[in-house]
């Protein structure tokens, strides 16, 4: 229960920051994907069943807040969580380089899939400009990921100390 509460609070904060008009002057491709970083962070630190359900539900929330077909980001985040779990099971994702690399890969996967799905729905074509967009977004997200991992680790340890982990 405490894990669900922690993820819900941090998730809501991340979602609000990400969609707030405070940062509207920053281009979308430069804004790091806080939701994806949170999902990556929860792998290995939170119980699998809770983490996987959180990723799916969080993706559904993003679907509702972004204009994506309901369920699309939910599924993508679910696959991302399982992917992180798989990577983490044989290659412990704790070092800076490994965090950067896995977050970058996951971001490329999620955003390429989102653009391709828009292409399949006839809304846009996936071209070179979209590829640049995805790469810039992925680099930006990966760059900020270590800092946010540290922030989440700190918050989690403080939260666990006060509330407990069970």
């Amino acid at each position: 229960m405490t894990q669900i509460l922690f993820l819900s609070i941090t998730g809501l904060i991340a979602l609000t920051v990400q969609s707030s008009t405070i940062f509207k002057i920053i281009p979308n491709e430069i804004k790091p994907d806080l939701a994806l970083i949170l999902i990556a962070w929860s792998t290995g630190r939170i119980k699998f069943s809770i983490g996987v359900c959180f990723s799916f539900c969080y993706g559904l929330c993003l679907d509702m807040m972004s204009g994506a077909p309901l369920g699309l980001i939910g599924l993508l985040y679910l696959f991302t969580y399982v992917f992180f779990g798989y990577i983490d099971s044989f290659l412990e994702v704790t070092g800076v380089g490994r965090i950067y690399f896995t977050i970058f890969l996951a971001c490329v996967f999620v955003y390429t899939a989102l653009h391709i799905s828009r292409g399949l729905l006839g809304e846009m074509n996936f071209g070179v400009s979209q590829l640049y967009w995805v790469l810039i977004k992925s680099i930006s997200t990966a760059t900020f990921s270590w800092l946010i991992f540290k922030l989440l680790d700190r918050s989690w340890s403080e939260y666990s100390r006060i509330v407990g982990t069970t």
Binding site: F48, V52, P69, G71, G74, L78, G85, Y86, D88, L121
Partner: peptide, 27 residues
């Protein structure tokens, strides 16, 4: 990484649910 049959079942259940929601919301 899902290790037990229960965890794999949960992942498959969520994928199925996601696909149902996705296809029902497209139109």
């Amino acid at each position: 990484m899902p290790r037990s049959a229960r965890e794999i079942g949960l992942v498959l259940l969520l994928i199925g649910l996601g696909l149902i929601i996705l296809f029902s919301s497209l139109s």
